[in-house]
Computed example of a mutant assay.
Amino acid sequence: MVMLELDRVCVALGRRQVLSGVSATFGAGALVGIVGPNGAGKSTLARAMLALVPAQGRVLIDSSDVAAMRRDDLARRIAYLPQGQTLHWPLTVERLVGLGRLPHLGPMSRIGPHDAAAIDRAMTRADVLDLRQRVATELSGGERARVLLARALAVEAPTLIADEPLASLDPGHQIDVMDLLRAQAHDGALVIAVLHDLTMAARYCDRLLLIDQGRLVADGTPADVLTNGHLRDVYGIEAEVHLGGAWPTVTPLARSPLTAPSKSM
């Protein structure tokens, strides 16, 4: 059972303090959403969990400091789907998804039957099996996004961090991806997703972290976090919030006359 801990994580990029003292603990079996306005520090927080940016404080996975771990060992523990990836090499989809198995292979090793099965499982779950022989650079934006998700799934790590996994997807595939992320979590993985769509966050996530100007403003269930007060203070909006029933919704209505929008960081 994986455990990921953030202990007073701070990140400065140049002269900007992007994250300030963020602490939280995540356990297996949960889909955790990180929400907040543009420039709040959400993606930086995701990258700090993987030691991809220099940070103060500590990030621990199962009591091991991620900054001190070998990169291949960390890659086996945490799969990462970054946002806005550009593909430069004309690989087939199957070969691209197969790159997710690299943390499990030794030098000069080849893909074996166990790896091939993991690749097939990942492509099936991401609904890209029919694209396996297509050249990845020739795919549409939505197809490419699902293929890159399949690559992350192919790692079969106990933790998955996905940064804006719904970008470039049509509404149907957004639902498919959120269904998949929730299924991964409820099958026992820890899944952390940076999200902008507050309705999707409310419907699918077990827990939300609300980040604003580098600080953790709220941490709890969607009902605890997506309050009118938080939306007004953090996003500077008035919204219609319905979190009861089977289909929670958060509908922005207007800029709040009481607060200015948060400054970008």
Rank of each mutant, 00 (worst) to 15 (best):
L258T: 15
A68D: 13
L129K: 11
A12G: 12
L13G: 08
L129N: 08
P252L: 10
A116P: 04
A183T: 11
D206L: 07
E5I: 05
Q17N: 14
H230P: 12
E138C: 13
E156A: 08
V194C: 12
P222Q: 03
R58K: 15
A136D: 13
L149A: 10
Q174E: 11
L231S: 07
A67H: 10
V234C: 07
A40W: 02
E164W: 00
P107G: 10
H196D: 04
R101Q: 05
Q174R: 15
L210I: 01
D219T: 01
V53I: 03
V128G: 07
T124V: 09
L6D: 01
Q83E: 06
A28R: 10
L19A: 07
S63V: 07
M123N: 05
R132I: 01
D170W: 03
G98C: 09
S64C: 13
L210N: 01
A12T: 10
L99H: 15
I61S: 03
A154V: 05
G57M: 02
R8N: 13
F26I: 05
T259V: 13
D187H: 14
R16N: 12
L96G: 08
C205N: 02
T227R: 14
V177A: 06
T221A: 14
Q56A: 13
M178K: 10
T86N: 14
A218P: 06
V241I: 03
Y204H: 09
Y235L: 02
A79T: 00
V9R: 03
D170V: 02
R182I: 03
Q17V: 03
K42I: 03
K263P: 13
Y235K: 07
A46W: 00
I192N: 11
R47P: 06
L226H: 08
R132Q: 07
I175L: 14
A28M: 13
F26D: 04
S262F: 11
R151S: 08
G188T: 11
M108C: 12
L253M: 14
V135R: 15
R232W: 11
H88G: 15
V147G: 12
